[in-house]
Design a protein around this nucleic acid. Structure first.
Lengths: 222, 222
DNA sequence: GTCTATATGCAGATAGAC
DNA sequence: GTCTATCTGCATATAGAC
């Protein structure tokens, strides 16, 4: 730590992170790291594994990142970007609140989806005891954005008279929380995640005063 | 298991696990390990930490257990024993289904409670990719027993005409799943767990057709 | 930018004294 | 039973060649 004043950014000597070597490679490493971190947890994943997953040498990781923690933070940031793009796609999908909510429910499952990945990353990170401001921010922003998208869909549906009267805030919280519970049961008890989401979809539709939920969409949100 | 004819258990030479040195110490080690595994996860906890937590030398762990995994399995088994005792206490508590369910809800929060501990252990274990039959069985038995206790309480309440008509199976699953979701939100978003449980209690009481939920009990189930 | 070679440290595990 | 001393291996991380 160069005490502060000016010393933090010497022009001539490029520092580890600020230099922009190969953005594609960086993204590739983030993506490989993200998959492994989300699946096995920070402590169980080695730099070697991540490098192997990306098809490069372990030492290269240290060219792009200051260390394992820095890579983790970057991977979480990468996931948040994915999430933002997904939420935008869901919300903009014809601006139909019913379809938005249906597509969001469909995005809850499958190991490739960003939503369960973020939940796993977040659980693991919180339990690590580590405090990385960039990760704290990223997690908060992700869940804030998800909530905003949901609230907007519910309010739009209410305004158009599509939904029975529900309180958007509590409703959004209820639905999000339940789906996190589904994730837990799926992991711990090896239950059928998609089936659990399907059952819940019926409950959600009932609460919104809608008819039978639409057939499961083929559309992969993520 | 002494399945294999005789070879597994030579009488003269005491093997690592079958010997029964000091049951109290063994339980103490399980308990210390349980707390740490549940809090930080298997991979982040070192034998050294566990020994320090129990106030003994790390080498002693290997006198009582065959290794870290064996200790983990024993700790999970220990937690299941705690859980059984707790469920029995909840169910036998005056045989009042309303109080049983209320006490069970109260037991959902607090890091000392076995229920969230089991959830954390289970999540961590499943993600580790390890396959330890003893742990698989223990997890299944814990959740089976919890479910049995819940179902019994609901059915008793229905039989006595205390509850509005609900389907016991789906209801039990719904409540358990939601509470797992509360755990996740509590950990990831640092939400107020007890407050979330209190809110949910209102919803549960409404579904059961009961009046205002009772005040939070002082009784610590665990 | 990417790799080879290597330093360093710590965690799991064992042998053996007491 | 419990501890001291120690071995082993792997993971993070760096130095430097290409």
């Amino acid at each position: 730590m160069a005490k502060a004043a000016r010393a933090t950014r010497r022009p001539g000597r490029p520092r580890r992170e600020p230099a922009q070597p190969d953005p594609d490679r960086r993204a590739q490493l983030c993506s490989a790291a993200l998959d492994l971190f989300a699946r096995d947890g920070f402590a169980r994943v080695s730099i070697k594994q991540i490098a192997a997953g990306a098809g490069v040498d372990p030492a290269l990781i240290y060219y792009y990142f200051a260390g394992k923690e820095d890579l983790f933070a970057a991977a979480v940031g990468h996931a948040v970007e994915n999430g933002y793009a997904m939420f935008a796609r869901l919300a903009g999908d014809g601006d139909d609140p019913v379809m938005t909510i249906a597509a969001w429910l469909d995005a809850q499952e499958g190991p490739g989806s960003t939503i369960p990945k973020m939940a796993r990353l977040g659980l693991d990170y919180r339990r690590s005891g580590a405090a990385i401001p960039a990760v704290d921010d990223a997690l908060r922003r992700f869940y804030d954005e998800e909530r905003r998208m949901l609230l907007r869909a519910v309010r739009t549906g209410l305004a158009r008279g599509l939904f029975r009267d529900v309180a958007p805030g509590p409703f959004a919280r209820f639905v999000s929380t339940y789906l996190d519970g589904v994730l837990v049961r799926t992991v711990i008890l090896d239950e059928d995640g998609p089936a659990a989401v399907d059952r819940f979809r019926v409950e959600v539709w009932r609460r919104l005063g809608l008819q039978k939920p639409p057939r499961r969409r083929k559309f992969i949100a993520d």
